[in-house]
Design a protein around this nucleic acid. Structure first.
Length: 581
RNA sequence: GGUCCAGUGGUGUAGUGGUUUAACAUGCCUCCCUGUCACGGAGGAGAUCGCGAGUUCGAUCCUCGUCUGGACCGCCA
């Protein structure tokens, strides 16, 4: 189709050129003998001006019609500074309607007022909106920069299967019934973890893939059932070398996509410090408001909430909120409810309104405790102190959730800032009292820190993993680890996790077998591409950077997926449905 | 599995401590208008108030259930 320019291209320098434009009618302003049309394509909007002589049918043109416009570029009398093309307009000499359009159910403009449900039902129209187009263009730009970076650094792109085998320990799998093998199922990959490790066994040394991953778990604003991982694995690199390479990559993305120079190297925060100071393993360090430990002050406390905690695993954590001492009863009830939601037993609140400690817990404190509290927390007039006592992890996380809430509520950070860091030194294992066994915190192939390997025999819970998460503004962008390549170490790991040899053979024998033929030291990580795109585009939800996302209940308003299928299809798959009525 | 919030013309909202023409904005249609750009002006069409049951003389409104959407907890190695 004849077209000389896009609708975002023309400028003052093009005046008097003869041009041919195509695009959608974004807006028509009919002044009677004179008609203005905003012609839109993915690059922008150009104003077309027509008079009655141009075409009789011009008054029949409606929004979202597709037009081909022949005309001459003119300088505008009244320029529109809001548009890049606002200095010019195209005086139409001929206008052809390429296609008509029904009235759209949603307004095609950045400021659509349609609810998300409606937007998803008519996603193809929602994606016509310039803001949405910009988000997807930006996502594609991120993808492009990452791919170029990895290719330039010797990484090879390899595809791994979508129909694969159910993997051990992790999220719920999506299963696909086999027609050929009745009663057997493929699983969709939660990540290509095992395949990428096998590619290291094969000797590719540097692998990457934009991998679709699937997890059958409940959705959130930042979680979808199917999502895209930038999956990366390397051989012969140390933890520090992998991290440096990934910093190079993300800094290039920030430079190319956002035009920002990010400070190097990224802060490396050990897991325990992240939890103690920020109450999160993915801390938002754009603002301070750090948690403080006051456990030792109240060792001998007369206050039952403080003296009933387990001295080994328990903790007392405080969060000081400046100028919040005048919070109402209602506000404080709300903070308490929030703390409880995140697993705290309760919330102790103390006001330092007129430089005097006030609160229902104060009567249990002696003078030494009061003095120590004031000094330790460095209290100022009008501070509000929130205290959570109990299990270390739960207390930190609950207070960390409050910290995040106040960081946002009190606008303690500039939303344009991007604060990267690594969280490192994660514990290798997590003990479940319920199941009376250890679970791998990352996955069972994660390598322990070299110096902690002897602890595997004596105190497994103290062993740290060679695992690392890249964190940005309170979101986990990605995470990874060095992997176990030594077979005896792997055997020891399985022993600690309580797997019998039969378990191992049945569940991932095919994977372990590969390791006996010369496995290089290897490690890698995976980034959540959707999350990167979400944060860089300042989107509220992952759904805004995914072309066709699913709703919170894992359905698609556009296609109505998932849907029932014909009995014939079920029969072929040897599936008999349980009666849900 | 759980908690909370929402469902009213095409779209987004208001509203009713229970009764009559259900309001506003925008979109849509018709007419007028040669410098608009969120154009303006005049007129018009468009809603069984998510669905089902209950209470009542009477329910968009109250009660219960249900469905859909959203946020979060659990879950997500």
């Amino acid at each position: 189709m004849e077209r000389t320019h896009t609708n975002g291209a023309l400028r003052l320098k093009d005046v008097n050129q003869t041009v041919v434009l195509v695009g959608w009618v974004a807006k028509r302003r009919n002044l009677g003998g004179l008609v203005f049309i905003d012609l839109r394509d993915r690059t922008g909007i150009t104003q077309i001006i027509c008079d009655e002589s141009t075409s009789d049918s011009i008054k029949d043109v409606r929004n979202e019609y597709i037009l081909q416009v022949y005309g001459i570029v003119r300088e505008r009398k009244d320029k529109n500074l809001k548009l890049p093309t606002g200095a010019i307009e195209v005086q139409a000499t001929k206008v052809t309607v390429i296609n008509k359009a029904e009235t759209t159910p949603i307004i095609i403009a950045d400021e659509t007022d349609a609810l998300e449900d409606t937007r998803l039902k008519y996603r193809y129209l929602d994606l016509r909106r310039p803001v949405m187009q910009q988000k997807l263009f930006e996502r594609a730009h991120i993808t492009k920069v990452i791919r170029h970076f990895l290719e330039d650094n010797g990484f090879i792109e390899v595809e791994t299967p979508i129909l694969t085998v159910s993997t051990p320990e992790g999220a719920r799998d999506f299963l696909v019934p086999s027609r050929v093998h009745p009663g057997s199922f493929y699983a969709l990959p939660q990540s290509p973890q095992l395949f990428k490790q096998l590619l290291m066994v094969s000797g590719f040394e540097r692998y990457f893939q934009f991998a679709r991953c699937f997890r059958d778990e409940d959705l959130r604003a930042d979680r979808q059932t199917d999502f895209t991982q930038v999956d990366i694995e390397t051989s012969f690199l140390s933890e520090a070398e992998i991290q440096e390479l990934m910093e190079d990559m993300m800094c290039l993305v920030m430079k190319e996509v956002k035009g920002l120079d990010i400070a190097r190297p990224f802060l490396k925060l050990p897991y325990f410090e992240a939890m103690n100071r920020y109450g999160s393993d993915k801390p938002d360090i754009r603002f301070g408001l750090e948690l403080q430990d006051i456990t030792d002050i109240f060792k001998e406390s007369a206050f039952s909430v403080f003296n009933s905690i387990d001295p080994k695993k328990g903790t007392i954590k405080a969060l000081v909120l400046p100028n919040m001492a005048e919070s109402s009863r209602k506000d404080i009830d709300q903070y308490t409810a929030m703390a409880k939601k995140y697993g705290a037993k309760g919330l102790v609140t103390i006001k330092y309104q007129d430089s005097i400690l006030e609160g229902s817990a104060i009567k249990f404190f002696n003078e030494t405790e009061k003095d120590q509290l004031i000094n330790r927390l460095g209290l100022h007039k009008n501070d509000l102190i929130l205290i959570i006592a109990g299990d270390w992890e739960k207390s930190c996380e609950a207070l960390g959730a409050l910290r995040n809430y106040f960081g946002k509520e009190l606008k303690l950070y500039d939303p344009e800032i991007f604060s990267f860091l690594w969280v490192v030194d994660f514990p290798l294992l997590e003990y479940s009292f319920e199941d009376q066994r250890y679970y791998a915190k990352h996955h069972p192939f994660t390598r322990p820190k070299e110096e902690d390997i002897p602890l595997l025999d004596t105190d497994p819970s103290m062993v740290k993993a060679a695992a690392y998460d890249m964190v940005l503004n309170g979101f986990e962008l990605g995470g990874g680890s060095l992997r176990i390549y030594d077979q005896s170490l792997q055997a020891k790991m399985f022993g600690i996790l309580g797997f019998t040899p039969e378990d191992i053979k049945r569940r991932f024998g095919w994977f372990i077998d590969a390791f006996q033929y010369g496995t290089p030291p290897h490690g890698g990580l995976a980034f959540g591409l959707d999350r990167i795109a979400m944060i860089l585009t300042h989107s509220e939800s992952l759904r805004d950077v995914i072309a066709f996302p699913k709703t919170a209940s894992a359905s698609c308003p556009l296609t109505n997926a998932p849907t029932p299928v014909d009995q014939k299809q079920l029969d072929e798959l040897s599936i008999i449905l349980k009666d849900h009525n």
